[in-house]
Design a protein around this nucleic acid. Structure first.
Length: 596
DNA sequence: GCCGTTTTCGGCCCGACTGTTTTCAGTCG
């Protein structure tokens, strides 16, 4: 049980309370508590251990704390169970339909007896729904699209959800003596942002105790299939996990094979065939078995690297194995040296308790130094229009800058940069006047409202914002929330062209729900000469972990150290920002933009 | 249900959009 699960439970209670017509402020209390818990920096165990520690969190009182304790210790919550009893059967899926809130769901349940997604879909198609007051043609259209979306997202998990589970299983198996080697394979190893299952590969000559330990894991809910070399289970969170056991000799081949992608492997096997080999999960075999010289060469395969070498290729890091040109590049020796954690020097784009973050500037800075050995951290709280996030007006921003300045005088450990995540307003202007932005070290501009503009309007809006001299970085470009919300309509090519023209840095937002810019578009941006900022968008010290997820995207996007501005020293970064601003001022001087 | 306090009740963020209305409710961020 972790904080996220408990926060989800509280959110569900809020929704159910609203569904049952409870007091709006009680509902809000549960929503606030969910957010407060999610933002709390201490791990759940600490919060539960000390008596009264939970209640110290602002937004969590006696009653909700009791609910949390009950749920965390027993996995159930009486009050929640009571609320669920009176809710439709397929409640969990129904509430995920965009555009369907508690009030409309109430009407659908009362008037049509809707209990499941299927019943809702049928009622939409037969026209029953349009007869209800408040429901029209458009609503039904939206509901049908929403149902399709819920279905397409089910059975998929965000990278960290899969990774956490996989790590726990690996840790559990690692201690067994019969486990010679163990690796997470599949899409997790390729660091895909969304995964469907977990693949774990073990090298062993003694599979039985490993199999027994695997199926006995507390995370395993049921066993789907169990053979000598492969076991499939469903985990408590509904995710499928496959364990494969191979002989130690076959391990590198199996690891390569089960890492995929399928497309990469198909391409690789074709190459092997051309060279007179047959490649599969058990080995690389000469087509002509009698060719002893070749066979001897293969005896030296101990690692995946050796397989690629045997095929005349550079080693292809798992992140690149999507058959998007990596095999051709590896053949020419032109694979990039991917950016790595060790290259990372400074953190840009973090929130604090000045806006919607949970922790103080000091705490964020301290942890940035401790966890990432960062030389600098840019605090970028929300701007004034973001009222839902307690955005700062110019006066509070001025005070925050003063606070930062006095902090920097005291500490030489890490330098805190003053910044903002400034809203891009509907007309493409920025949420602070130019003279305010000018005083900041670092400005991220992002869209947080008015998502439903036409593709042309949205493209124009962003392109205009990029021309502002102080628009250093474009934040979460597409606005998508993985498995939750589609990106807004946007002509990405035009936006990238504008970013290249204006020397705007593009953010790779490391929030696991965003991972935006998508790695699939990184190369197109890089080819235009665009630089990237890999940012955590952390709303608490725990959120600093997002850097890791952002780096996964950068690596999947073929980026090197020189593509990522976080790898610059503080001086070089600030010089770059200054030069880019001057460049845009000269553009503005030519009449394309005037500072408002 | 939570918070704060001139401390045990009164207030709790709010604007925009959408689709449905004929002045507004529901949803979202």
């Amino acid at each position: 049980m972790d904080k996220k699960q408990i926060a989800n439970m509280l959110e569900e209670m809020a929704f159910l309370l609203e569904f049952h017509g409870e007091n709006v402020f009680k509902i809000r209390a549960f929503q606030n508590a969910a957010r407060a818990l999610g933002n709390a920096s201490e791990p759940l165990e600490v919060l539960l251990e000390e008596p009264g520690r939970l209640e110290q969190i602002k937004g969590i009182g006696k009653s909700i704390a009791a609910n949390i304790r009950e749920y965390a210790t027993t996995g159930r919550c009486n009050e929640l169970e009571e609320l669920r009893k009176k809710a439709p059967k397929d409640f969990e899926n129904l509430i995920r339909v965009p555009g369907l809130g508690p009030k409309r769901l109430r009407v659908l349940v009362d008037e049509l007896g809707i209990q499941t997604l299927e019943q809702l879909e049928r009622a939409c198609r037969t026209g029953e729904v349009t007869k209800l007051p408040g429901f029209g043609e458009k609503t039904v259209e939206k509901l049908l699209a929403g149902i399709a979306q819920v279905r397409s997202f089910s059975g998929q998990w965000l990278f960290p959800q899969g990774w956490e589970m996989a790590i726990k299983i690996v840790e559990d198996l690692k201690s067994l003596r019969s486990v010679k080697r163990i690796e997470i394979a599949g899409s997790l190893r390729r660091r895909k942002e969304v995964v469907r299952d977990i693949d774990i590969l073990v090298a062993t000559t003694d599979p039985e105790p490993i199999a027994a330990r695997f199926v006995a894991n507390v995370l395993v809910q049921s066993v789907v299939a169990q053979g000598d070399t492969k076991i499939s289970v469903v985990l408590t969170n509904g995710m499928q996990a496959d364990l494969r056991m191979v002989k130690p000799d076959a391990f590198p081949f199996a690891l390569q094979y089960f890492t995929g992608s399928k497309e990469h492997n198909t391409h690789l096997r074709a190459r092997a065939k051309k060279l007179g080999y047959r490649l599969n999960e058990y080995g690389l075999f000469p087509e002509d078995e009698k060719e002893s010289a070749r066979a001897e060469g293969l005896a030296s395969v101990r690692e995946e690297e050796d397989i690629y070498r045997a095929l005349g290729l550079q080693y292809v890091p798992p992140e690149l194995r999507e058959d998007l040109g990596e095999i051709e590049a590896a053949q020419k020796g032109e694979l990039p040296t991917l950016v790595s954690k060790e290259d990372y020097r400074g953190i840009l784009h973090c929130h604090t308790n000045w806006s919607d973050g949970a922790d103080t500037i000091e705490e964020m800075a301290r942890q940035a130094r401790r966890l990432w050995n960062a030389e600098y951290i840019a605090i970028c709280d929300h701007s004034q229009s973001a009222s839902y996030a307690r955005g700062l007006d110019p006066e509070r921003l001025r005070k925050q800058l003063q606070t930062i300045a006095s902090m920097n005088k005291l500490s030489t450990d890490i330098v805190v940069l003053g910044g903002t995540e400034c809203d891009i307003l509907p007309d493409g202007s920025l949420d602070f006047p130019g003279e305010v932005l000018d005083q900041l070290d670092f400005v991220v501009v992002s869209i947080h409202s008015h998502f439903n503009m036409s593709k042309e309007q949205m493209t124009q809006r962003i392109c205009r914002a990029l021309e502002h001299p102080c628009a250093d970085v474009l934040g979460h470009v597409s606005g998508r929330l993985l498995l939750m919300r589609e990106p807004y309509a946007l002509d990405l090519d035009k936006v990238l062209d504008a970013a290249a023209r204006c020397r705007t840095i593009i953010e790779i937002n490391g929030d696991p729900y965003r991972l935006d810019l998508d790695w699939r578009f990184c190369r197109a941006a890089k080819e235009r000469g665009i630089l990237f900022a890999v940012n955590p968008d952390a709303h608490s010290v725990g959120g600093l972990r997002n850097i890791e997820f952002g780096m996964n995207v950068a690596r999947k996007g073929w980026l090197t150290r020189s593509d990522v501005v976080n790898c610059l020293s503080r001086n070089d970064l600030l010089t770059l920002i200054r030069e880019n601003r001057n460049f845009r001022r000269r553009l503005a001087g030519r009449g394309t933009y005037s500072i408002s």
